[in-house]
Structure formats: structure tokens, C-alpha cells
Design a protein around this nucleic acid. Structure first.
Lengths: 187, 187
DNA sequence: TTTGTTGCGGGACAAATGTCCTTTTAATTT
DNA sequence: AAATTAAAAGGACATTTGTCCCGCAACAAA
């Protein structure tokens, strides 16, 4: 659930250091809670997280939220929108303070045209996300809360990340109340 | 929900016609009900649907099924597995009689190495799938059955496809019983 | 200390969905 | 037509999840 992509990170770092015109890639920082993308708005950059944790989530019309992923070091943000030229699919917020490389859209698209290696890394990253998203979707639909819950708890144990109860609930796609019940039922 | 990809189809047809060694791309047919891929098994080909409708679904340990997508003309199958070199993520079955181009894995991977255009088409196809899968997942988690149901019914109206009640339920991630209730509540 | 104020947990009830099983209807075979 | 099988519909009850709301503990402001 906490995604990272080391190969993307080293790729972008190499690129950044070698950049002639630093305007095309700039470093940006976000305070905990700030939005990197707002659902429905036109994106202006593609980000690659250098440090910190972000959450990527839908805000539905009924006021509820669904967290797709927690994205951390090396993960790319806004690539779907850049590829398809569409407004932001969902919100992305900084869960901790975040530092990220920001690529100009034309620059990113230009790279896509000439860099086969970038294409391959992106293909692999997207494939990975489909695998995660779809298998999680399936098990959330077909199993009861407790099932998915235990997986999150494992990760919390491993100190990988510490997320608020509210975010845990949003990740599971349930109410806080239901999450509490499920937690109590575990023992 | 019934996905098609005309640009992929014309791409592969051009490729097929121009093929020197026809062994690398062969035409395969599947009877209604046959499996193109079996979840967990190693894939041997990448398919591109020429004609007919397939369903792509998970079989969970509790015996339930969740349909990810209905894939039709021009959609590619097995590309995730080829990219990541993993066993089949889910089952793919022919919903009607199906005809598909079957590409050898080494051939497909070879193409990925040299054909930038293929890379771009794939990137776009994967992006599209993430968009669909994740937004559907969110709304299925956060809304009640009736919401998603009305969308399916629209498509049935437009004669796009006629799917069994059982498949509709599996697509919504609910029981047949619940689907029937939701249908009755609609009017 | 007192007074909010905020976050978290949980009780009580309502709504949604699942399970099991029977009935009904439609299609197919003999 | 009769018999058989398959697909669809739904009744009755159990389980899961949501909604609403209250109380308690922690903490900050007065």
C-alpha cells in the first residue's frame, strides 16, 4: 500500500543533475496537508516524489473519500493526466512534508517521444498499479472488512508508515465506525 | 465497461499482413466459454482481440468472482504479465465466440524494445485502464449498488452488449440476489 | 481550576447486502 | 406433449455496514 519506485527516482536524479536548463525540472516542497493535485483541475506538472508520503484519493459527490494509494519515494504523479491530456482524476495530498521533482508538461511529453527507457519504466509502473488497484478492488468487493484490515495492520507493524484512523478507513472504503468495529473484532 | 481499442487493432492488422514469419503472430479462435488465460498459470501468448467479447475476472478463494472488464475489438490481453513476467493475474474467458491475434512473447518483447509507437499505444491503453478501474473501484466502494447499476443498464439499452444476470452481478461485485433486489428497486 | 474544544470510541437503531432455499419461468431434450 | 434441465426471481432470516448521537479523555485557552 505504500508504493515506492527506486529506479524512477535514480533516473530522475540523474536527469536533473545533467539538466542544461533547470527550468524544465524544478524541486518543489509541500507541507503536510497541502494538495499536489486537485481532482478535476487541469494539471500543470508531472511530479516525481523525492521524499515524503502522499495520498492519492477520490472525493465522491456524496462527500466520501476513497484512497487509492500512498505514494512515496520515486513514484510518479500526474502521468495519467499527461498521457491522456485530461483534468486530474483524483486529489493528491501530502501526508507528511514532501519534496518532489516537478517536470514541465511539454518537457515530459518530449522525453516520452525520444526516451525508450522512460517509456519502459512508465509501462512497468503503470502495470504495477493496475495489478495493485485491480486486485485490491476485487478483494474489497468480495470479502468483508476484516480481510483487508489485517494487511494494513501488518504494514503498520513493520513501521513502514503510520496513518490516521480516518485514512485507514478511507483506504478500506468504509466508515470510521465500521473500521473501529472491525478492529475490535480482530481479537 | 465494454472496452475497445481501434488503434491497436489497425496496428496489429498492419503488422500481421506485413509479417515475414507468420509464426510470430497467429490467429486463434475460442468458443464461447473457453478460457484465454487461467489465473495463476504462466501465460504463453499476448492476445489482441480481433472479434468477439471476453471477460476478464478474478476468482477469489471464497469462490466468488469479480469481473474487471469486458474486452472486445482491439483490446490487448496478457500485456501486464508479459511486462512484469508474472503468472496470469486473472482469468479471461470468451463471452461470445472470439477471434484473436496471438503474439509470441519473445516477439512481443522484441517489439517493445524497438517500436516507440507500440510503447505509446500501450501507455495509453494502460492509462485508460487505470482510470476506469480506479474510478469504478471508488464508486463501488462508496456508493450503494443502484448507482453503478444504472450505468450498466444504459449500455444494455444501447445494444452494446447483452450480459447474463450472473455476469452483471460479478461486474458489480455483488450477489445475484442483491442485483435482483436493486433491479426491482429501480422502478 | 474551569471552560470549551476536539478527537476517538462505542451504543442503538436503520439500511444494505449475503445466505439459503423455494418457486417460477423459459429453454431443451426425448 | 411430456419430461428434464437451466436460468431467473424472490421470501425469510442472518450478517455486515452505515447513520446518528452521546460520553469520555486529552488538551488548550481563559
Amino acid at each position: 500500500m505504500l508504493r515506492k519506485n527506486p529506479s524512477f527516482l535514480s533516473y530522475i536524479e540523474r536527469l536533473y543533475d545533467a539538466m542544461p536548463r533547470k527550468e524544465d525540472i524544478v524541486m518543489k516542497t509541500f507541507r503536510k496537508g497541502e494538495l499536489l493535485f486537485a481532482q478535476g483541475q487541469d494539471p500543470i506538472k508531472v511530479f516525481i516524489v523525492k521524499e515524503g508520503v502522499t495520498k492519492c484519493y477520490f472525493s465522491e459527490d456524496n462527500g466520501k473519500e476513497y484512497i487509492l494509494e500512498f505514494l512515496s519515494e520515486g513514484e510518479i504523479l500526474g502521468e495519467l493526466e499527461a498521457l491522456r491530456t485530461i483534468p486530474c482524476l483524483c486529489n493528491v495530498a501530502a501526508v507528511s512534508d514532501v519534496q518532489a521533482y516537478a517536470l514541465n508538461l511539454p518537457f515530459f511529453k518530449g522525453m516520452l517521444e525520444k526516451d525508450l527507457h522512460l517509456n519502459h519504466m512508465l509501462l512497468n509502473a503503470l502495470a504495477e498499479r493496475i495489478i495493485n488497484t485491480s486486485s485490491r478492488s476485487s478483494s474489497q468487493q468480495l470479502y468483508t472488512i476484516g480481510h483487508g484490515l489485517s494487511k494494513i495492520l501488518e504494514l503498520q507493524e513493520r513501521q513502514e508508515i503510520s496513518i490516521s484512523k480516518e485514512d485507514m478507513a478511507a483506504y478500506l472504503g468504509v466508515t470510521l465506525r465500521s473500521l473501529n468495529r472491525a478492529l475490535k473484532d480482530l481479537d
